[in-house]
């Protein structure tokens, strides 16, 4: 079996001034590298918290999380080096050009060909003509393309995207969704998208609904439809 993330019997709750709030209880979920997942649900249902638990950046109140890599079971802490994030607000560093924003994770890892790889990825997302533009000089769609390139440039095993099209118009949203799914597929990265958008969610192979503290699997689609729709990455 490919590398995967497993959450078993997870319970997440927190204390407010008045009462204790339980986001979800007895939650079980497996995320396999190379497949795509969408998590939908109403605001406040705990979608972002689930994303944080899956990425190993937060601890569950109870339950167990595992990262199985090359057949070896490890704690979710070891997942950190193998993940990338994409945000609704893009979160590019405003002082850096598109090229430097994409090269950032590689530079941090001491990759000497960081700029070349970044150039290749910007070309893949269709921004080879915007290499030296700063975020403020790019449209929302273009900024999200840069963010996708930045998340994938260091070839993580899993990508977590939080409302990646939430800030974009319909046309840009469609383009970004196409790009995101095709790039993850081409890179064999597992993709977990948290979204309110049914259109975006429908692109994923696995669609989950998080509501009233429980996670339900809405459908499993064949991968072929996605491949047909995907543009080249």
């Amino acid at each position: 079996m490919s590398n995967h993330i497993e959450l078993s019997n997870i319970r997440q709750s927190f204390q407010t001034k008045e009462s204790k709030v339980t986001l979800f209880d007895d939650l079980n979920l497996s995320i396999i590298q190379g497949e795509s997942y969408a998590i939908t649900g109403p605001s406040g249902a705990g979608k972002s918290s689930l994303l944080m638990l899956l990425s190993g950046l937060e601890q569950a109140t109870t339950g167990q999380g595992r990262y199985v890599k090359a057949g070896q079971s490890q704690s979710l802490d070891s997942l950190r080096a193998d993940i990338g994030f994409i945000f609704q607000q893009f979160h590019l560093l405003p002082e850096l050009t598109a090229l430097n924003n994409v090269a950032l994770p590689l530079k941090l890892r001491g990759d000497k060909s960081a700029l070349n790889k970044a150039r290749v990825w910007l070309d893949k997302v269709g921004l080879s003509h915007r290499l030296n533009h700063k975020p403020s000089e790019l449209s929302g769609g273009e900024q999200q393309r840069v963010a996708i390139a930045r998340a994938l440039v260091f070839e993580p095993n899993f990508i977590f995207a939080d409302e990646p099209t939430g800030n974009l118009d319909q046309k840009s949203a469609t383009e970004i969704a196409d790009l995101l799914f095709s790039c993850c597929q081409e890179n064999n990265a597992g993709l977990v998208v948290v979204t309110h958008s049914e259109i975006l969610a429908s692109r994923a192979k696995h669609i989950f609904l998080l509501e009233n503290g429980s996670l339900t699997n809405r459908q499993i689609k064949t991968q072929s439809r996605d491949i047909q729709r995907a543009i080249s990455c």
């Binding site: 993940i83 560093l93 994770p105 941090l108």
Partner: peptide, 16 residues
């Protein structure tokens, strides 16, 4: 703060 958060989103720890 934003820079640190972004660095952490690349898979780096707080120690980095």
């Amino acid at each position: 703060k934003k820079k640190n958060s972004i660095i952490m989103s690349f898979g780096f720890s707080r120690a980095t």
